[in-house]
Design a protein around this nucleic acid. Structure first.
Length: 329
DNA sequence: ATTTGTTTAAGTTCAG
DNA sequence: CTGAACTTAAACAAAT
């Protein structure tokens, strides 16, 4: 057990597409965005399968990031070291896996680029996300676990999505919590099994629930503190297995990853109640309805602590700029 | 030189 | 069966 050796753990391919894997990674981050290398890390830490053939799947993953509109690229600030941009989920990509399968979406999410004024510029997206992150942090602080909050640029959400603004408490359907939770609840007896063509050898998350709490023996394709056990497991990858990356393995997603609820909670109150383009009027009410368990109080915001000198210039305007997005067919 | 990002193209798998 | 979603490969530009 201590030494996984090689290929000790199931090397079966996890029942997730690259899109869902990437979405999970992104959602696990406090800021809801990650650089490419951290997406890699997230996946490798949790899915042993992806600790091999890295060249292959990472190329595929990169292709997916570029190719799919559900991923948006957010530029780094000049004062931020590091390579590449951050990747985030398009705010209105909705639940792309409503059908229950994380292998295949019903439809591909596509953004209709209509007018050249389209606010789909990365900068706007960045502001949008930062704004959201700020809200979440603020909410957290207000809830008591106050510490020091990074001064997120006060830029208001410029990423106007025609009413698709999400309350800070909102969790994307891709949040690993949600993914797990969904499998957990599943209406009626219709459980996870109903959707998985996966070989029986695949212990699935919902089975894990019945197993009590002991991971390790359960989810064979997942490795490490995937998030459902909040035991202080700093991810047992001490060995320099991943040194190929030369990345110091700073607990970046660590913070969000291990703070997931021990018991998955239903996130979405009502399924089918979250269309991609709801056009809800004022989504600000229930902020802490289900306060995200992420952002563990103990772990400071180590992640991208870029706190740039608040640029006071912003206006909540950005009116007619409606970003059309739709599931293309 | 390596990493990151974009794009094309062909092959595979699944849902309708 | 067909089309769409997905995977994989590969060439290449850009950034670090």
């Amino acid at each position: 057990m201590p030494r996984p050796g090689r290929n000790t753990y199931s090397d079966q391919k996890p029942p997730y597409s690259y899109i869902s894997l990437t979405a999970m990674a992104i959602q696990s981050a406090p800021e809801k965005m990650l650089p490419l290398s951290d997406i890699y890390k997230f996946i490798m830490e949790r899915f042993p399968y992806y600790r091999e053939n890295t060249q292959r799947w990472q190329n595929s993953l990169r292709h997916n990031l570029s190719f799919n509109d559900c991923f948006i690229k957010i530029p780094r600030r000049p004062d931020q070291p590091g390579k590449g941009s951050f990747w985030a989920l398009h705010p209105s990509c909705g639940d792309m896996f409503e059908n229950g399968s994380f292998l295949r979406r019903r439809k591909r999410f596509k953004v209709l680029k209509s007018d050249p004024l389209a606010p789909s510029k990365p900068a706007d997206a960045a502001q949008y996300l930062q704004h959201q992150a700020k809200l979440r942090l603020s909410a957290l602080a207000a809830s008591g676990a106050a510490a020091h909050l990074p001064q997120v640029p006060a830029a208001a959400a410029a990423y106007n999505l025609g009413g698709v603004a999400q309350p800070s408490g909102f969790k994307h359907p891709f949040a690993i919590e949600n993914i797990i939770a969904r499998e957990y609840k599943m209406p009626g007896g219709l459980a996870f099994s109903a959707m998985q063509p996966v070989p029986a050898a695949y212990p699935l998350p919902n089975q894990l629930s019945t197993m009590g709490s002991s991971l390790g023996a359960g989810w064979s394709h997942v490795y490490g503190s995937a998030g459902m056990i909040e035991s202080a497991t700093p991810i047992p990858m001490a060995g320099g297995d991943y040194s190929a990356y030369g990345v110091p393995l700073k607990p970046l997603c660590h913070a969000a990853g291990q703070t997931l609820p021990a018991i998955p909670v239903p996130i979405k109150p009502t399924p089918a109640a979250v269309p991609a383009l709801p056009a809800l009027p004022a989504p600000l009410p229930a902020l802490l309805s289900n306060s995200p368990p992420s952002l563990s109080p103990t772990s400071s915001q180590t992640a991208t602590s870029q706190s740039s000198p608040a640029t006071p210039s912003e206006t909540l305007t950005s009116p007619a700029s409606a970003l059309h997005s739709v599931a293309v067919h």
